[in-house]
Nucleic acid binder design. Structure first.
Lengths: 356, 356
DNA sequence: TTGAAAGCGTTACCAC
DNA sequence: GTGGTAACGCTTTCAA
């Protein structure tokens, strides 16, 4: 198509059939009988004589002109765009409420500054293949890692090498490179708050249920819980039960087995969906909640209100984390440095009927 | 910065401090001692002599070169990018499981073809302000509309004027413009399937609970339900209850009021979260499910398994809708025409304990 | 206030 | 196989 490059005057009408008549500044200028620069100035809100402006406005409307972002980016060496790569083994990676809220918060903040957000999910083992990482199309990046610690560490190293500002969520690695910042939620405190709450309920023994998955948020939750309950007199026993997968049925079965041996005073699940599985397992076993055993989880997304009894849970500030990431990246872009390289956002214990 | 345009030889190192040393084809060519075109050819997988290739590979690794997408897009008049605008009054617009799955499906498909996905949520009244619509940065667009029918119609008209391929979800408008296609799920059939199911359960009266919101999916659901239950002998009574908002507490209260007057044989809620509200209202009123009343919803996202009893629901093919949109847009881009302009994807009744 | 020219990084098109 | 050249649409710079 478009044979050996006609020298000029290709109007939007004539131009290739692919992009049906996309008009350019030059087209508008021609239509309005002014120079390209005048149109450009008008589009960018510079002062233009009223008379000229009217002509330009009409030409723009007539030609349905919209500025071309690629051309602008190329000229300005600035993309006005941020990308987020989400490593997740679930193809429906946005379905996790933590992620969906985080991305919403990020997207909204960026939109308010007329920045674009590119979203790409990727299975953890193919992380390095993500287009967003291999081509330059964003001013800055966000990443949610997953998989084994070694793998995550490796991915973080690759992110550092990109030479772009990057925000990584929910990691504990110390970040040597000045272009990387880390945003987490204070899961340690979450575990502690929950521990205190259980103490106030006079719980004597706790079963902490977690997925085998190597995920530092969960380590923090357990650590916070244990730090509050360990070494008390009279003693509070804390036992950890590790589920091979996070699948609802698997978790439910595992807990049912455990309950057949012994009923703890409390079950704390590393996530809400595991807590619901525990709830169901108790129900099936004829163990009443909260009378016979109290149950609590982590996350606080919607689910808590759907169960009977409603669930006590530690609420994640996921939306705020996304928003905060946006703020930090924009500051980094504008000022050349992150205001802070390691941020921890507060969590909040929400008491439901399951620990009443 | 970067004073009056030095003629050449600005290497990545010297270049402006903003984008710290982003290297270009020219830098790589210089480093490898070959021409720009050779590097470009290599990068795009064209044949290159082994010896040359090695040098280029090394130079790329040394300089950490990544291709610049804006330059590529500008040159090729192709962005390799799709945008999705989501009109939603909830700031956490991705939190709706229908939307999060749809976007995941779309994103994954596009990723597999090395296309980028731009995501932007926007409150319905500011739809026309979305950056994605006002600047050209994508080859094609997707849109999820919301708000009053009149408003949606207006937005659809604006989308048509964009002169880009567009896929709109869950709309019923006939689409005059050849650049717009519509993808829906078969809610009519969903309503019918549910109606049949209730008939088999010998239900005599149905309360259909819906939000006031003007949303055509919900109209279809009701129509399907009624078309199956209307005019039978003996008659099945169908009554519609409209909730002013979709808020959980509001819906719960409304249903409780209704139940205090009369208990229907079945409650069908327009969405799962409303169905859960109904479940809770029954529980609070001492009405047993499914013994005294059976309950069903629409959507089939996770929630169904969290409740007690588990929920009967009509499962939406949300992920597939997103994927399908991607396929249609890419076909449209490659072949110049949509294979089909109106697609309806099948739904599936999933029977849970709530109608056992 | 308006305009002409150069160049951002890339690729199509030739020529060698 | 390799390389020179022009152009994609835009904005900065400088001159009128």
């Amino acid at each position: 198509m478009a044979q050996s490059l006609p020298p000029r005057s290709t109007s939007a009408q004539e131009r290739g059939s692919r992009r049906s008549a996309r008009s350019t500044l030059s087209d508008v200028a021609h239509e309005a009988g002014v120079s390209v620069m005048t149109v450009s100035n008008f589009v960018r809100g510079k002062a233009v004589r009223v008379q000229t402006r009217k002509r330009v406005e009409q030409a723009i409307a007539r030609l349905n002109y919209r500025p071309n972002l690629s051309a602008r980016s190329l000229r300005l060496s600035e993309e006005y765009s941020v990308g987020i790569v989400i490593a997740d083994s679930d193809p429906a990676f946005l379905n996790d409420p933590f992620i969906s809220r985080l991305v919403s918060g990020l997207s909204n903040y960026l939109s308010s500054l007329d920045y674009t957000l590119d979203v790409q999910g990727v299975p953890p083992e193919r992380f390095d293949n993500a287009t967003i990482l291999n081509k330059v199309g964003n001013d800055a990046l966000c990443a949610i890692l997953c998989g084994h610690r070694t793998l995550r560490k490796e991915h973080l190293t690759n992110l550092q090498r990109l030479g772009q500002p990057v925000v990584v969520f929910q990691e504990v690695f110390s970040s040597p490179a000045p272009n990387v910042a880390i945003i987490s939620q204070d899961d340690l405190s979450g575990g502690r708050q929950l521990g205190q709450h259980l103490l106030a309920r006079r719980v004597r023994s706790v079963l902490f249920v977690r997925p085998a998955l190597d995920w530092c948020a969960i380590e923090q939750r357990e650590r916070g819980l244990r730090s509050t309950l360990d070494g008390l007199r009279p003693a509070v026993e804390v036992k950890t039960l590790t589920a091979p997968s996070e699948r609802f049925d698997d978790v439910q079965r595992l807990i049912r087995e455990q309950l057949s041996k012994k009923t703890p005073g409390a079950i704390v699940a590393a996530t809400d969906s595991m807590a619901v599985a525990a709830l169901k397992a108790c129900e099936a076993a004829g163990i009443r909640v909260p009378r016979d055993v109290v149950i609590a989880g982590f996350n606080g997304f919607d689910v808590w209100r759907y169960t009977t009894p409603t669930l006590t849970t530690v609420v994640s500030p996921a939306y705020e984390m996304g928003r905060h990431a946006g703020e930090m990246l924009i500051q980094r872009l504008r000022n050349g440095a992150f205001p802070k390289r390691n941020v921890s956002l507060p969590v909040r214990l929400q008491v439901g009927e399951s620990t009443a």
